[in-house]
């Protein structure tokens, strides 16, 4: 591995300072499971490596009145073990619980997943379906950007060498919102995603859809938003038939996205139906179970700020 200077800050302030001073060629590692592999095979060669694993300020999961806030250095295990997320934001739970393996989940962070932005990133599809925003800080200040814009906006929206992603946040789902995720892969574990189906539906008291986010991972460079399906669902009753009516639209969108990839398109344009079917079934099941949900039990749950 190429030589580098190593830093081990204990606070956000210290980290921002180091970033400012090393912005010519630096890299942050939070768990390191992606960055280290790239350094090992020479794909990247930073002169400065900044390990933020010890920055306790970045490890938290906070459920506020209207916002869910996740510290960027929270591991997939942290998210998987959060009772509120497991019960109330099932898609995020499923995505984080199925990343790689227990070992990778113990090291890898949601912030790393978002910034690394691998085509195969699991949590990023769910965060997009939840309408997540990113909080990015530097010694010059702070900016907030939607995850969608972060990916679609080109180089100028991306993280700069003097910047640090500190938080991923999204609107706290109310009782009308259901979130689901299903990962199609070749194995039950240690599997790179073939299709990641992330679905967030909002329905009103009449069981009619008022908003929908249908996101497919590993179907394009960044997770694919099925805009036609989303538009179709609004105003429709949430039931099996409604979801089944979206299959052709899903297939069309997949074909348009990867038609120049013959090794993938024939499989994925068929498999997208079954993959989203699992997520849709989960949504229906969640709505069916809603009658006994007690909102008060799960307000204001905090994860302890860990000191590593």
């Amino acid at each position: 591995m190429k030589e580098f200077e190593y830093y081990n800050p204990k606070s956000v302030a210290e980290t921002l300072n180091i970033l400012e001073n090393t912005k010519n060629n630096n890299r942050i590692i939070a768990g390191g499971t992606d960055v280290l592999l790239m350094m090992n095979d020479g794909r990247i060669g930073p002169d400065h490596v900044i390990n933020i694993q010890g920055v306790g300020e970045l490890k938290y999961i906070v459920i506020e009145k209207s916002l869910v806030r996740i510290g960027a250095a929270s591991t997939f295990t942290d998210v998987e073990q959060n009772e509120y997320i497991k019960k109330k934001i099932k898609g995020l739970y499923e995505a984080c619980a199925h990343v790689g393996s227990p070992q990778i989940r113990n090291l890898g962070t949601v912030g790393g997943n978002v910034i690394n932005a691998s085509v195969a990133g699991d949590s990023i599809s769910v965060f997009l379906s939840l309408g997540a925003n990113l909080i990015i800080r530097s010694s010059k200040g702070k900016r907030k950007i939607s995850l969608r814009e972060y990916y679609n906006g080109g180089n100028q929206t991306r993280i700069q060498p003097d910047e640090l992603l500190t938080e991923i946040q999204f609107k706290k789902p109310d009782n009308g919102v259901a979130n689901a995720f299903f990962k199609l892969g070749k194995r039950n574990a240690l599997a790179i995603v073939d299709i990641g189906a992330a679905v967030t539906i909002c329905r009103n008291a009449e069981q009619t859809c008022t908003s929908a986010k249908i996101i497919g991972g590993a179907l394009s460079r960044y997770p694919l938003e099925f805009t036609k399906v989303q538009e179709y669902l609004i105003g429709k009753k949430i039931n099996r038939q409604t979801f089944a009516n979206t299959y052709e639209m899903l297939q069309e969108a997949v074909y348009e996205s990867i038609k120049d990839r013959p090794m993938e398109v024939y499989y994925k344009q068929e498999a997208v139906r079954g993959t989203f079917d699992v997520a849709f079934e989960d949504i229906l099941r969640q709505y069916e179970e809603r009658s006994d949900w007690n909102e008060e039990n799960y307000d204001s749950i905090y994860l302890e700020r860990r000191k590593v």
Binding site: I29, G31, G32, L36, L107
Partner: peptide, 12 residues
């Protein structure tokens, strides 16, 4: 916690 030591730097 179980971790894969090939994906970690000594400093970690």
């Amino acid at each position: 916690r179980a971790v894969t030591s090939c994906t970690m730097l000594a400093g970690q």
